[in-house]
Amino acid sequence: MNDPFTKLKSSMKNTIFKDLSFSDEQKKAVKHAIREDKLQPQLHFWKEETLLDVFEFLQREANHGYEISNHLFQKYDQSFQNNQGQLYTLLHLLENKELLTSKWIEEKKYYSLTAKGKKQLAAYTQGSSKHGRSFKLLLEEAVL
């Protein structure tokens, strides 16, 4: 028997891949999803210090949103002073990107760092002097 693969391409085309084509509707769905994604809040929307403060605060222990905002306020970060809701948008985003995880305890949602989140914070604190990369950039790369 000669090389069984010589007719492979045409065989597969005519059988299992027959009429298997990525349709225009599916392409449209992708384009639509991309446009939606553009409207989503992105990490770069927030300040470097704010992100770092949240991570450092949660590194020590799990905390709920109100404590996190208090902590930021004490650190003179005014980012959320008149817009508490934004903090929750950020927490949800970080949770979606699997940098934070949360648990409900007595009707309060406690946030803590995931392994991935801890890893990024450690990479930043250990390597910041060497690479001079911002924490935000590290996070953006990690969540892609």
Partner: peptide
């Protein structure tokens, strides 16, 4: 029995 099917199925 069809040869093309046979080959494709074998690959899969």
């Amino acid at each position: 029995k069809d040869e093309e099917n046979c080959l494709s199925n074998a690959v899969m």
